[in-house]
């Protein structure tokens, strides 16, 4: 058992009012100092290429999805958030996803999918916001995940740069 020895209050502290005025003085002083809190969501968080937001699929400049549904991200995903079904295409690359779903409630934004992808098809975007009224609404399908390559450009360049270091 530990007996906590409390400090005896001094006379000025015991008469209470001076301490109230001392506190109010601090509050008043802070009103004229620069603010340190952020007005989220009116003021968005700054993001850069290192931000590891939600994964998004790359749509190449020719309008086709870059993903060939090899399933490596699905296998790498530690949270089992990704589900892929494939289908055949008429293009030179014979395979594309028929269904590509990421359960955003399961996704832990670890970036393993981006690391596993052999086709530069999935990247961690700077999108961080996630809200819906149902759980099913947060299982994103291919339409919700697709982003043109130009939007993901900074991240793609960044990943290529750090991969070149190996």
């Amino acid at each position: 058992m530990v007996v906590v020895q409390r400090r005896e209050l001094t006379f000025w502290e015991r008469i209470y009012l001076p301490e109230i005025f001392r506190g109010l003085a601090i509050t008043f002083k802070k009103m004229f100092e620069p603010r340190v809190t952020r007005q989220y969501p009116e003021e968005a968080l700054p993001t850069n290429e290192v931000t590891r937001g939600q994964p998004r699929l790359v749509v190449k400049d020719d309008g086709n999805i870059a993903c060939v549904s090899c399933g490596l991200c699905e296998a790498a995903c530690p949270a089992y958030a990704i589900t892929i079904d494939s289908q055949e295409t008429e293009r030179f690359i014979e395979r594309e996803p028929e269904r590509f779903e990421i359960d955003m409630l399961r996704c832990i934004l670890c970036g393993f999918c981006e690391e596993a992808c052999p086709k530069e098809a999935i990247f961690m975007s700077d999108e961080l916001e996630l809200a819906n009224t149902t759980r099913q609404g947060l299982v994103y399908d291919m339409k919700q995940l697709e982003r043109p390559a130009s939007t993901l450009k900074p991240r793609i360049d960044y990943v290529r740069r750090i991969n070149d270091r190996w």
């Binding site: 090899c70 494939s86 289908q87 014979e94 395979r95």
Partner: peptide
Amino acid sequence: FRFKARVWN
């Protein structure tokens, strides 16, 4: 079986 499944699944 073409593109039906990845074998590890």
